[in-house]
Design a protein around this nucleic acid. Structure first.
Lengths: 156, 156
DNA sequence: TCTTGACCTTCCCATGATGGGAAGCTCCAC
DNA sequence: GTGGAGCTTCCCATCATGGGAAGGTCAAGA
């Protein structure tokens, strides 16, 4: 099987297959006399594994860990579960972050006329004109930050 | 005000301030005789605007659009609202995508012993051994794809 | 046999937003 | 005048992926 067929069979682009080889995620493939890479069913299986892991949001680094665990027949499932739960926590953190953005934006968009007039609470918020009623807590972000780690003379 | 003070006042790193100038998001600053950039209150206000927009997930490109609208006193709020609602839709799409991942991962993690034994449904899923009960629809992903846009001989 | 064109190879570049760090200047306080 | 904080520019790295050029290879059809 050439790289094109392996790509079709696995759903991973030829470009990516070469890249995965380059970074050591998969072993260098054997070559035919014409210098073409040769793939077998096992390699395709590995590529599908990678694709599935990526589709679940695992980074290539995490994918590499999972791949090694998969190939290590004496692994402990606890190790796999640990990688998965850490990833779940990361996803949930990012989801919560984006949901916060959505909440704020929906509120602002709701308050915005969306008409021909220039008056716009969305821009007012971005500009820091927090003339919003009491809801400004929802527009979170900007953690207070202890003001300055800088050791400067700070004319301020 | 030097760049360091502007950074402190706006919460945008000096590195980023220079970058924003380089890509044309903000105008090139005036320089003092020693070639230092000089900032005033207005520039800091712009930087804060950018920071706020970024914290709500807007890309730099969207931020640039919003910035121009902000500075265009004859804007129509509809234009602003359009940018915001498109961004909300994008965020919601990405949230849904990640929630799908979380759902699948939680199911798999729940089914995984997480002990010293090698047996692991998480790896089984990644490997494509969908010995999962009926729930395989939730493990979605991989849109069917019309098989192949390739015009090849495809030994298949 | 020659041509065509689909396929393969390597190499370089681009993305988006940010940080790190080097080399060399300026400025200020002591 | 010296030390060090701060400024300047320039280059590189991240993460995963795609685009494209230049050139070699193979197979099918004229």
């Amino acid at each position: 099987m050439n790289i094109g067929q392996a790509s079709d069979a696995s759903g991973v682009s030829a470009k990516m297959i070469r890249y995965y080889e380059e970074i050591g995620l998969i072993r260098p493939m054997g070559r035919t006399g014409n210098n073409y890479r040769v793939y077998g069913e096992e390699e395709v299986h590995v590529l599908r594994f990678i694709k599935r892991a990526r589709s679940l949001g695992f980074s290539l680094e995490e994918t590499e860990t999972l791949l090694k665990l998969w190939q290590d027949k004496s692994r402990e499932s606890a190790a796999v579960k640990e990688v998965a739960t850490a990833h779940i926590a990361d996803l949930e953190r990012r989801i919560a972050e984006m949901q916060g953005m959505v909440k704020t934006l929906k509120h602002l968009a709701h308050c915005c006329g969306g008409d021909h007039r220039p008056n716009c609470p969305i821009l007012d918020d971005l500009a820091g004109d927090s003339s919003a009623p009491g809801d400004s807590s929802a527009s979170g972000g900007d953690a207070p930050l202890p003001a300055s780690r800088r050791k400067t003379k700070k004319v301020a």
